[in-house]
Write a protein that binds this DNA or RNA. Structure first.
Length: 811
DNA sequence: TAGGTGATTGTTTTT
DNA sequence: CAATCACCTA
């Protein structure tokens, strides 16, 4: 059999290429993922052992997709498909000592990094207002991505004096790094830097890995930074069977250290590279490709590349001018609405892109007024929510007692009377004495000038963590006395398949129980507390899932493993392609996706290109902005509409806009929509509104702009208990404003994110009647609810966003 | 200690 | 507008 029959000649060449370095320059929509997965299959069919292949991506989603497709081609062949960070995390666990770490190291996310850096700034007596931590962190991050160690940075900027930012970083960076090591922790950038250094400094280790991974494939190569380059190169010395795919024109992460040069450098560093260009585009109409090409041709630092259309001609690309953002949003919304209602488009055919997140607001408002279902990419990731970070903080501290940031985060959460000043005093004392924080807390009575209350609180905290640690070491201890954690009378027992809950979920439940974290939200009618409780439930579900998955693989579920998964998983995976909702996202988030109908809003000077990239008058930054627009344009399959306005509200102030420089570079059909507003003011009495029970809905849907964080607060004041509203909608093609929780919340989140289901909650289903929620899993739109119904002992699972379940008994 | 108020300041963010 | 943070009062 062949894995290349249905491919174009150049695609086939990439699949058939066997040994030696291969550079695949893949334009947008050219079937790149297909080529990579076929190539992997082809390698295996040639007799390469799956274990010898390593495929690296940037996102979890890409890794998942790739892994699934390889599985589909060749069942039961397990190729290691991983993100850079996960791959490095794994290597670093095995060889932690080489980097001066212990294998139970913590992974700090951005907020942990900021907390740590701020404490460093305080220790070094730097004025935090003059040197914003985020800016310094950016420098440190960049240095790490460039493989510049603290010592190198210091040496390099030895001559910088006083308060110049480099001079500050030269002092802060080493202290920051020292603190990380003291905490037995790494940040995201460290995962790469430690591994890169380990591979360059330890030839024995490098060679063994180089020999193991004979074939390496790297996706989105244009986004690799120096450290990633080094890692890949180090593993491709003996046999440079390295295949990299990417498109320099889609490099939009330069500001994060990506080096577009890596693609050019590739041909220099690996002699006799075979170069294959995939220039045929199977995605977009010739009109869209023409616009994309006209634009990108204005970049000077690029390899010229053709975009060959394979699809028949379609509609012209449009450029529309509106009065203001509201007009823009309303017009687009009403247009989407009528296109769907006229029959041949689905909600999920549409995407709206913008340069900055703040532009989503006006669109969200318009969409919810028209009661159109939508999903927003981005926002607060699951693992960044405060309650989740708190709970994970406990787990982290249990796993790694040296984790200072985790300690500081949870020591007074819930409140134990250890306030800021007590804590300061305590930390100073512990540091001066050179004692780990947790150990110091055990002996808090020795800290001078500490209030009785604080000392007691600290000791209680230490005792609690010790108790957990014992449980972690001995999860199913028979008579340890510390295992009798019952989870109230909530029906959260393992499940009925007789499986044992693994060590991680057992420990998590114990933590929730003993800290009172769960009880805090239990029975609350407050909207945001219900949300928090359901987030915590989701965390429990993910722990159970982790335990179960490892049990299936017959591996040992470890706390560290769970924490690693949690740190390296973001919520973006949860964006669904076919969920029946319009998708809103930034241009960055759009990379790699495609939609039949794309609106690209706010194409204005200072937005695209963004003012910050204009400020420094740096052509490289301007070119990156152009590439960003290029990425947006090339996401569209059938139709593309660019919009700009005369006035734009920015930071609460309305300003006249300036036409984007990029617009001169495009020849598109322009339309002035500042005079003829040919959209209705409201989705009033047309067929769509009639689909809803308008009387009821008006009680639930706010007319003003919903707003993400405070929307919860506001909706808490809305009436509950009108649970009949959702019953009245039936049939297909109706908007997915379907969960009663969504109606109840009254927030737009209800439309985009199903919220509010929690284990133990009483619900009603129009067909099955009353039931109890017994399981909640998955994120956002993939969120699944399992319900035990009273009648017939029926158990059913539902996609939360789509089912007509309503909570009962709350009113 | 903890919660509340006013001043300040804004990109993008695969991990 | 709205998030964050230094500062202030109960």
């Amino acid at each position: 059999m062949s894995f290349a029959d249905d491919l174009t000649p150049s695609q086939r060449a990439a699949v058939e290429h066997f040994e030696g370095p291969l550079l695949v320059v893949a334009g947008p929509g050219s079937g790149k993922t297909r080529v990579i997965t076929r190539r992997i299959a082809r390698l295996i069919s040639r007799g390469v052992h799956p274990r010898e292949i390593l495929a690296i991506t940037f996102t979890n989603k890409a890794a998942r997709v790739m892994s699934e497709r390889v599985q589909a081609l060749l069942p039961r062949s397990f190729v290691w498909v991983s993100t850079f960070h996960r791959f490095c995390a794994k290597l670093l666990r095995e060889h932690a000592a080489v980097a001066g770490l212990a294998s139970n190291y913590s992974i700090f996310d951005v907020s942990d990094q900021l907390t740590l850096l701020k404490s460093v700034l305080q220790d070094l007596d730097f004025d935090a207002t003059h040197f914003p931590a985020s800016k310094l962190l950016g420098r440190i991050s960049k240095a790490k991505n460039d493989l510049i160690t603290p010592e190198m940075y210091q040496a390099r900027h030895a001559k910088s004096v006083g308060t110049h930012i480099d001079a500050v970083v030269a002092r802060v960076y080493p202290a920051y790094q020292k603190r990380l090591l003291e905490s037995n922790a790494v940040d995201f950038d460290d995962l790469l830097m430690h591994v890169a250094r380990m591979l360059t400094e330890n030839e024995e280790l490098r060679l063994s890995l180089d020999e193991r991974f004979r074939f390496i494939l790297v996706d989105e190569y244009q986004d690799t930074n120096r450290a990633q380059y080094q890692i890949v190169a180090a593993l491709s010395q003996r046999e440079p069977n390295l295949c990299v795919t990417g498109d320099p024109d889609q490099s939009v992460y330069g500001w994060r250290g990506a080096q577009i040069e890596n693609i050019l450098r590739f041909e220099r560093d690996f002699p006799r590279v075979e170069l294959i260009r995939l220039e045929e585009n199977f995605r977009s109409t010739p009109e869209i490709l023409a616009a994309a090409d006209e634009l990108i041709r204005h970049n000077e630092r690029r390899k010229p590349k053709r975009l060959i259309a394979t699809r028949p001609s379609g509609r012209p690309v449009e450029l529309r001018l509106y009065l203001d953002g509201q007009d823009e949003a309303m017009s687009i919304t009403s247009e989407i609405h009528s296109l769907v209602k006229s029959g041949d488009r689905n909600w999920s055919d549409f995407a709206i892109f913008y340069r900055v997140n703040s532009l989503s607001r006006s669109v969200e408002t318009a969409l919810s007024r028209w009661k159109i279902p939508y999903q927003v990419a981005g926002g607060l990731a699951f693992y960044e929510r405060a309650e989740i970070k708190d709970v994970l903080g406990y787990l982290r501290l249990i796993d790694n007692p040296r984790d200072r940031i985790a300690f500081l985060r949870v020591v007074n959460a819930p409140a134990r009377g250890v306030g800021k000043s007590s804590l300061d005093r305590f930390v100073k004392w512990a540091d001066a004495a050179g004692i780990e924080l947790l150990a110091a807390a055990r002996n808090s009575e020795r800290v001078p000038n500490l209030s009785k209350k604080a000392a007691v609180g600290l000791r209680a905290f230490a005792a609690l963590i010790d108790e957990f640690a014992e449980l972690a070491a001995n999860p199913f201890g028979d008579d340890a006395g510390s295992t009798e954690f019952q989870f109230g009378d909530e029906p959260t027992e393992p499940d009925d398949k007789g499986e044992t809950v693994g060590p991680v979920s057992t420990l998590l439940r114990a933590v929730l129980e003993r800290t009172g974290y769960y009880r805090q939200y239990e029975g609350s009618l407050e909207e945001d507390e219900i949300q928090r409780k359901s987030n915590v439930d989701e965390l429990i579900s993910s722990a159970i899932l982790y335990d179960r998955q490892l049990a299936e693989k017959e591996e040992v579920a470890t706390l560290g493993g769970f924490l690693e998964t949690a740190s390296l998983t973001q919520d973006v995976d949860s964006l669904e392609e076919d969920i029946g909702a319009v998708t809103l996202m930034t241009l960055h988030a759009a990379k790699g996706l495609e939609f039949p109908h794309v609106y690209l809003i706010g194409v204005e000077q200072n937005l695209i290109p963004h003012e910050r990239s204009l400020r420094e008058n740096d052509p490289a930054q301007l070119e990156e902005e152009r590439r960003l627009l290029f990425v947006g344009i090339t996401r569209a399959k059938d139709q593309l509409v660019l919009t700009h306005t005369q006035r734009r509200e920015i930071h609460g102030r309305t300003l006249s806009t300036i036409t984007s420089d990029f617009l001169q570079e495009l020849s598109v059909e322009t339309r002035d929509c500042t005079v003829d507003d040919n959209y209705g003011d409201e989705p009033s009495n047309d067929s769509f509104a009639a689909d809803f029970d308008a009387d009821n809905l008006d009680d639930f849907l706010p007319d003003e702009a919903p707003n993400r964080s405070r929307g919860l607060k506001r909706s808490a004041g809305l009436k509950r208990g009108k649970t009949s509203a959702s019953d009245k909608r039936k049939g297909k093609g109706k908007p997915h404003l379907t969960t009663a929780a969504a109606l109840e919340s009254g927030s737009n989140q209800g439309v985009s994110l199903p919220i509010g289901f929690a284990i133990g909650m009483q619900v009603r289903h129009p067909r099955y009647g009353l039931g109890t929620v017994v399981d909640v899993s998955g994120f956002s739109l993939r969120r699944t609810v399992t319900v035990d119904f009273t009648v017939d002992n029926r158990r059913e699972s539902f996609i939360a966003a789509k089912c007509p379940l309503q909570p009962v008994g709350l009113s």
